[in-house]
């Protein structure tokens, strides 16, 4: 057999790929396929998936959509043209995820820039300081934030002892937003830092030399050149946000429903697996679109960097 492997590169390739291909196919693609099949099923008397096959789960998602332009400030500014139960859910999820990604970016960029400009020794120290939350259990960190913000938590105890009004932040959309930003910050800082560390600062000098002011040098030269890190960080923030479960539950108390949380509910509280599967697939499509955008721009980005 060893002889055969030595003589036929194709056999070697098959031997190398088989375990991975098997795992990917059996424990990733087939489960997704089963989910796809279930999303077209109905429920039997006990509520479990069963034939006949139907489109009703998808129809439920787009049911009762009506034209209703509106503008609200719930969970940040939101502008809508259409309304509908699940359309609202998707729209809110995308919107909150986008807003949280944007806030995370705005907070993370100065930090990454600061780190990239530090002298080497301090830079490693700062990197270490980002790595710890990066590797720390997400649940534990979110729990720590929730603990801080509780009605009788440290912040409010401090405020009360100063005779100030306690804040009722927990279990609001704002709390969910804070939780998402807090949870995802390290995932934004690290890729941004990686891009900025490689950044050639003579590019800024060249831009200034050619008459670009600080703002133009930033937008025309620095941003495009660090775009791989920017896009990677945004995807690493956006995707987990839209599917977030822990944050929505711990920070929002389940009151600010996002798709991920809603899907989980279909499998626990309401036991509607077919509908949950349909929701999952729609979410996958949204995420895939985001991923395609990522690959497009990161390919363009790496072209620019090399």
């Amino acid at each position: 057999m060893i002889q055969a492997l030595r003589e036929h590169p194709a056999l070697r390739l098959v031997a190398l790929m088989t375990p991975g291909a098997f795992w990917l196919a059996v424990f990733f693609l087939i489960p997704l396929g089963i989910m796809g099949v279930i999303s077209f099923m109905s429920r039997d008397a006990q509520g479990f998936p069963a034939p006949p096959y139907t489109l009703s789960n998808y129809q439920n998602i787009i049911r009762d959509i009506r034209f209703a332009p509106s503008l609200s400030l719930e969970g940040g500014l939101s502008i809508r043209l259409f309304e509908g139960l699940y359309l609202d859910l998707f729209w809110r999820s995308i919107w909150i995820s986008l807003v949280s990604t944007l806030i995370t970016l705005v907070i993370a960029f100065p930090v990454a820039l600061f780190m990239a400009q530090l002298p080497r020794r301090y830079r490693n120290l700062a990197l270490f300081a980002v790595m710890i939350p990066f590797w720390t259990n997400f649940l534990v960190r979110t729990y720590a934030l929730q603990f801080m913000l509780r009605g009788n938590g440290p912040i409010n105890t401090l405020l009360r002892s100063l005779n100030l009004e306690p804040i009722e932040l927990l279990f609001t959309p704002t709390a969910v937003l804070i939780g998402l930003v807090y949870g995802n910050l390290p995932f934004m800082i690290l890729p941004l830092y990686t891009s900025l560390e490689k950044f050639d600062w003579t590019m800024i000098e060249a831009a200034h030399d050619l008459g670009a002011n600080t703002w133009s040098a930033f937008t025309r030269v620095m941003l495009p050149l660090v775009s791989p890190g920017l896009v990677a960080g945004s995807i690493l923030t956006f995707v987990p946000s839209i599917g977030s479960y822990i944050t929505v539950d711990l920070m929002g108390g389940g009151r600010t429903n996002l798709i991920g949380y809603s899907i989980a509910q279909q499998f626990s509280a309401s036991v509607n697996w077919p509908f949950g599967s349909a929701l999952s697939l729609v979410m996958m499509i949204i995420v895939t679109i985001a991923a395609v955008i990522y690959f497009r721009s990161s390919r363009g980005g790496s072209r620019a960097v090399i």
Partner: peptide, 20 residues
């Protein structure tokens, strides 16, 4: 006066051409 308001231009040692 910042570099972008000076009537001089530089050819950099590394050329500093914008790669993007």
């Amino acid at each position: 006066t910042p570099p972008f308001r000076r009537d001089v231009n530089t050819v950099f040692q590394s050329y500093a051409l914008f790669p993007h």
